[in-house]
Amino acid sequence: MKNVLFVCLGNICRSPLGEAVFNHKADPLSMRADSAGTAAYHVGENPDHRSISVANKYHVPIHHKARKFVAEDFERFDYIIAMDRNNYDDMKALAQGGIDHLFLLREFDPEADGDMDVPDPYYGGSDGFEHVFHMVSRSIDELIKHIASDQ
C-alpha cells in the first residue's frame, strides 16, 4: 500500500481536501492519504466548514483532525505533497535525507499555468474553496496515475 501525505500551512483547508479527495478516488487502489500542516495553529481542529461543505457537495467524505507535520513523516509516507512553494520549502528544510518523494501538488495539474501553488482559500469566500476543490481533484487524478505507474 502506498501512503500519501498532503501538507499545507494550517491543515484545515487545502490539505484536508487533498486527503479526502485522494482517499475517495484511490480507495480501490490500495492507496491511503493523510494530511498535516507546517504550522500548529489548528492542531486538533476539524477542517474549515467551507472545506467540509465543498467536499459534501461532491459526495467526498471528509474526516480529519488537524495535526502538525513532523520530520518523521518523511519516513512514514511514500509521497509527500505540498500545496504551495512555501510549505514545500519548509518541509525541504526539515528533511535529513533525500527529498525524492516530496512534490508540489500542481506538478500533477494538467492545467497548471506556471503557478505551482494551490491558493489558500481561507480568507476568501466559498467560491475560493470551489476553485481549490477542482484544482486539487484534477491534480489528484494525475497523481494517482503517477503513483500507479511507479509501482
Rank of each mutant, 00 (worst) to 15 (best):
F103N: 12
V21S: 00
F103H: 13
D78M: 00
Y88N: 11
N3G: 14
K65G: 11
L94V: 13
R32S: 11
D127H: 13
L94D: 08
K68G: 08
R67Q: 06
K68H: 02
S15C: 15
L102F: 10
G114T: 08
S53F: 03
G44E: 08
K68P: 07
S126M: 14
Y41A: 10
D27A: 08
V21I: 15
A33R: 02
A20N: 08
L94W: 10
H59C: 08
L105C: 10
G10R: 01
G18P: 03
I147W: 10
V7L: 13
V21E: 11
N56S: 15
K68M: 12
C8T: 03
D48C: 00
A71N: 14
Q151G: 12
T38K: 03
V118R: 02
I144P: 01
D73A: 03
A36C: 06
I81P: 04
G44S: 05
E111W: 02
E45M: 05
N11R: 08
G44L: 08
S51L: 07
V136C: 11
N3F: 05
G44C: 02
A20Q: 00
A82V: 10
F22K: 00
Y58V: 02
V4T: 00
A95V: 02
N3R: 14
F133R: 09
D89W: 11
G98H: 07
S139Q: 04
M135D: 07
S35V: 07
R76H: 15
M116E: 14
D113I: 15
S15N: 13
N86I: 13
K2Q: 05
A112P: 13
M1F: 11
R32I: 14
M135G: 00
I80Y: 08
I147N: 10
N56E: 15
I140N: 01
G44D: 00
A40R: 06
A55G: 01
N11V: 03
N11L: 03
A71S: 10
A148K: 13
E75S: 15
P119T: 05
L9I: 15
V136G: 05
P119F: 15
I12A: 05
A36N: 04
H59Y: 07
R106Y: 12
C13Q: 11
R106F: 08
N46P: 14
N46A: 12
F133Q: 06
D89K: 14
R14I: 14
D73N: 10
S35T: 03
G125A: 09
M135Q: 08
H49F: 15
A82I: 01
D90F: 13
Y88L: 03
Y79H: 00
M83Q: 03
K57C: 14
L5H: 00
S149C: 12
